[in-house]
């Protein structure tokens, strides 16, 4: 009699779910930065393009990683609703802060859930990158303090 298929969850199931959240955050950021860029004058769009490309690269890397594990990567939503109207450069900077803070939350969750050392190495690097971008946008938004002692964690 053949063995019954194993119903045991994958050892990386929790980690994969957290990576899916990080991937969803990357999709959101790629979309959101298009809105940020559209609200800024041309001469202020360089950091927007760099940030958007960073999230694109991360999105692609996560999709490859999940696929290699036999997990179907989550796709982008058909559309997103803005949390507030983006009518000025300051609004755009605040939206960028929201995107990066969401990214940081997703990656702290990955760190919490990860079972693979390599995933935690990726997580700590991406968390640092997101916070560096967030500092720039908090400055542009006129927020104080511009730094956060615990990016992605509750205050």
């Amino acid at each position: 009699m053949p063995d019954a298929p194993s119903t045991a969850p994958s050892p990386t199931a929790a980690e994969d779910a957290a990576l899916q959240s990080a991937l969803a955050a990357a999709h959101t950021a790629v979309w959101g930065y298009a809105v940020v860029g559209a609200a800024l004058p041309l001469e202020q769009r360089e950091p927007v393009a760099a940030a958007r490309q960073a999230h694109r690269d991360l999105r692609d890397r996560l999709a490859v990683l999940l696929t290699s594990r036999g997990v179907e990567p989550v796709g982008a939503e058909g559309g997103y609703a803005l949390p507030f109207p983006v009518l000025s450069a300051v609004d755009a900077a605040v939206l960028a802060v929201t995107l990066e803070d969401g990214t940081s939350s997703a990656w702290t969750w990955v760190l919490d859930q990860a079972t693979e050392t390599g995933t935690r190495e990726l997580g700590v690097a991406e968390l640092g990158a997101a916070e560096l971008r967030a500092v720039g946008w908090r400055t542009a938004a006129g927020r104080t303090p511009v730094t956060s002692p615990f990016p992605g964690l509750p205050d």
């Binding site: 919490d112 990860a114 640092g128 730094t147 615990f150 992605g152 964690l153």
Partner: peptide
């Protein structure tokens, strides 16, 4: 791990 990563990022 989450705390150390967060502090490092901060």
């Amino acid at each position: 791990a989450a705390l150390l990563g967060s502090v490092s990022a901060g």
